[in-house]
């Protein structure tokens, strides 16, 4: 009788032991999945950052074409672009654009390249490059050229 009782007790303890091992295994598995989920979310947020920089760069009054404050979408003023690099190099623009490089390439007619902003991240894990066709308006000659705004975001 005693032995039976002891056997029963041992059985219960063994079952509980196995149960806790299973719970622990499940828990370890859950944390690993959560870790991966966080990494995926981090990558998603980095993508959102790249889109944010692209949106912000395109809407900077420092570069945008405008007449009497009526903004022309998807257009960069050529004379503003030539003056912009010295201003965009100031520390306050790091808050706007972060670790990124912005280059304005004039494709047609003629070619030109204006490095508007350059703050690459040394030893970056990731670099995402985006290309946006933009009109480059020269107010001196009132003509429009075909350009590309190259945005590289580092993370």
């Amino acid at each position: 009788m005693e032995k039976r009782g002891q056997m029963q007790m041992m059985e219960t303890v063994a079952i509980l032991f196995i149960f806790f091992i299973l719970i622990s295994l499940g828990f370890i598995f859950y944390t690993q999945v959560a870790k991966q989920s966080i990494a995926t979310k981090a990558e998603e947020f980095q993508d959102l950052t790249a889109i944010q920089v692209a949106q912000l760069a395109g809407s900077l009054p420092e570069l945008q074409c405008s007449e009497q404050n009526i903004v022309k979408e998807n257009c960069i003023d050529y004379l503003k672009a030539q003056a912009a690099p010295a201003i965009l190099a100031k520390p306050e623009y790091f808050d706007v654009l972060g670790y990124a490089t912005l280059t304005l390439q004039k494709i047609y007619p003629g070619t030109d390249e204006i490095p508007l902003y350059s703050r690459p991240l040394v030893n970056a894990d990731n670099k995402r490059a985006s290309f946006f066709p933009v009109a480059i308006f020269d107010p001196a000659s009132s003509t429009t050229a075909f350009g590309v705004l190259v945005i590289e975001v580092y993370s």
């Binding site: 998807n74 933009v134 003509t143």
Partner: peptide
Amino acid sequence: NTMLETNAP
């Protein structure tokens, strides 16, 4: 949009 606005010298 950009291509259409481009001037050809």
